[in-house]
Amino acid sequence: MNIILVTSISLGTIALIAGLVLFVASKKFAVLENPLIDEVEEMLPGANCGGCGLAGCRAFAEAIVNNKDTSLNCPAADKDTMNDIAEKLGLQISGGARMVARVNCQGGHNSIREGDYLGIKTCAAAVVSNNVTLVCPHGCMGYGDCQRACPFDAIRIINDIAVIDENKCVGCRVCVKTCPRSLIEMTPYDTRVYVACNSPDKGPQVKKYCSVGCIGCKLCDKACEFDAIAYKPFLAAVKPDNCTECLECVRKCPAKTILFRGDDAMAVKPAASDRAETVNV
């Protein structure tokens, strides 16, 4: 009996003292923080993708609450979410057109490779050791660095080429930063016509290594009535502002380099076997 009494009293006292210390500490050392930060953070997608240019969602919430910085935009959040946040903070957030990543290459099995690469199967590793087997010096190697980097699971490697599911893509730019060949580009979601090639090489050169590369023939430029083709040397590009989606360029392109991603074409569903293969690279 005595033992029980002593232990309960002593333990109780210790618990009491400890509780008091904790209570005092929590009051005395409390960091005052705007509760709005927590609320805004809650509303954000929480992928910590860094697409806004800050170090994660918490940093974004702090910046937008504390600095009322209206130029900030969370690329991963949809329009409604951003409007809600703006409303909560009494801000006007401009936001722009929805941007998605697009891979400026459709080489894959259409592009010639020389040699078998054995080693660390990432694009960065192949580049750093000069072991790229893809003959095209500008195209997608297809080892899937972007797929592994994408926080939204929007990229698949299909037939050795990165394919972006534009419905899943939130425009966080992680893949753009990851690609060692810089061939992923942000383009407006609404402009569905784009040139899927990154090679500024001359036509005969391109033809040697790729059957679907831009050969710089300018036929698209001639075909376009709306001045929507920007022609860098030997590589065409679509000007999103001018494009009316008349698809004249898509029809004229001899190498089928210019693509139109219609609504149904956007949802990319890789076959099960592809998925297993590409996930385990």
Partner: peptide, 9 residues
């Protein structure tokens, strides 16, 4: 056959 490219050594 395709020859192998890999990292040294």
């Amino acid at each position: 056959n395709n020859i192998v490219v890999s990292s040294s050594p």
